[in-house]
Simulated assay, not measured.
Amino acid sequence: MLDGLDDVPWHRLGHAYGTASDVPGQLRDLLSGDVATRGVALWQLGGNIVHQGSRFQASAAAVPFLLEILAGPSPLTTTERVRLIELLGELAIGDPSFYPSPAFPLDEIRADAAAGSGLMAAFEAGPYDGDDFMEYLSALDEPDQERLGAVLLLRVYEAVRAGKPLLERLRAEEGDGAAALREAATETLHWL
């Protein structure tokens, strides 16, 4: 499980607190047999890769592994699985109350991301590491910050959207705790 995790250049990716070098350990900790270790990992990931509605370079990179953990055999409890689905929803759209209608403004985000793609390419081509991203971002004017943010948002949204078949399966799950899984999957699918 988690094939390819060590192939991601996490040290070059940023999250809310700097370089994302700690994300692989947090993802591995989600597979721990210890409930406290899993709880800390979920809490840390929730603060690192989506922080107060912001997404980061590490956010999109982490999503395929979160989906793999959710799909595969794991020690996660139903409550932890629900929280993981909620985390994926937060990654995809942030806080739903940010959007005045039930529709996610995907076309607008795509247009902004297209305008910001050169900014992201310039950063990614540079000699930067994950600690430098926030400095790079803060040096830009506000419209360019928004465009760069749209690039990150679109990357994360598309990564979560790739998990739509899994969420559809979870929405149809039966058994103990299935109602909570169905509800969380339905809420996240609503935005995808």
Rank of each mutant, 00 (worst) to 15 (best):
P143F: 08
E146P: 01
A61I: 04
L70N: 06
A61T: 05
G46H: 05
A159V: 05
A185H: 07
Y136I: 01
A61F: 04
A162K: 05
R28P: 01
D22E: 14
R110W: 06
E183N: 14
V160Y: 00
D141A: 10
A41F: 01
W10Y: 06
G14C: 10
A150F: 04
G130H: 05
A111E: 15
R169M: 02
T37R: 15
T188N: 06
A150Y: 03
R12D: 12
R12V: 11
D144F: 05
L137K: 12
H190S: 14
E158Q: 13
D112S: 14
R83K: 14
P75L: 08
D131C: 14
G14L: 01
T78E: 12
L148Y: 08
L181Q: 04
E108F: 02
P105W: 04
V50W: 00
G4W: 01
F65M: 00
P64L: 07
V35L: 15
F98S: 15
A103D: 15
H15V: 07
G94E: 02
R55C: 12
T19H: 13
G175F: 10
L42V: 03
A122S: 15
R171M: 12
R83S: 15
Y17Q: 13
V151G: 07
S138G: 11
M134R: 15
P100W: 03
G116R: 05
L30D: 00
E80D: 08
F133V: 12
E68S: 14
Q26D: 14
Q52S: 12
G89L: 04
L66C: 08
A62V: 04
D141R: 03
W191A: 02
A58P: 09
A62C: 09
V40C: 09
G39N: 11
A121T: 12
A41G: 01
D141Q: 13
A180N: 02
A16Y: 13
W43K: 12
Y99A: 13
D132P: 09
R81C: 04
L27P: 00
